[in-house]
């Protein structure tokens, strides 16, 4: 099994995307999806020498739930600021988030989450990849924002990936 599917996560994602693209859960579509999930990782295996490790697959679901909830809440918050505040009264500034994460996948997931949630956009990474530049739309206490990002998202991602 491990030799047939060297990248199990990639294979599952490819098969799933194929089924969604065909918009049909029939035996044929699923079979072709599994075939693609076997063939594409085989052909591109040179670009993927190692495989990303996911320690706790079920923590991923919990993380998705939290992020989706935060996206909904943050959208209402940002909509309020955009509609009822004058742009130049928003106290926006950059903050630096020091990272404990070291793998590329975990940092990518954290940066994506930060961009999608409460009034923050991740803008850049330091040259050694150990701190993240985040732009906040409205903040009075930068330290609290950083603490919230580290506590709420980074801790969970560290459990999932490392």
């Amino acid at each position: 099994m491990a030799r047939l599917f060297p990248q199990p996560i990639l294979s599952i994602v490819i098969a799933l995307v194929w089924v969604l693209l065909v918009n049909d859960i029939s035996a044929g579509a699923v079979a072709l999806g599994i075939l693609l999930g076997w063939g594409i990782p085989k052909l591109t295996s040179r670009y993927w020498p190692d495989k990303p490790r996911i320690r706790r697959p079920f923590a991923v679901l919990e993380y998705f739930g939290i992020v989706l909830k935060d996206i909904a809440v943050s959208n209402v918050q940002v909509a309020y600021w955009v509609l009822f505040r004058r742009g130049d009264t928003l106290r926006s500034q950059y903050v630096t988030v020091p990272l404990d994460l070291t793998t590329a996948e975990a940092i990518t997931a954290l940066a994506g989450t930060i961009t999608l949630t409460p009034g923050t956009v991740s803008a850049d990474l330091s040259a050694d990849g150990r701190s993240l530049l985040v732009h906040c739309l409205e903040t009075t206490d930068p330290a609290a924002t950083v603490a919230q990002i580290k506590e709420r998202y980074e801790r969970r991602l560290k459990e999932i990936f490392e």
């Binding site: 950059y94 040259a127 150990r130």
Partner: peptide, 12 residues
């Protein structure tokens, strides 16, 4: 306007 990286190197 960018803050310091907190490391010995600059932003990427």
């Amino acid at each position: 306007a960018l803050p310091d990286t907190g490391r010995s190197v600059g932003w990427a």
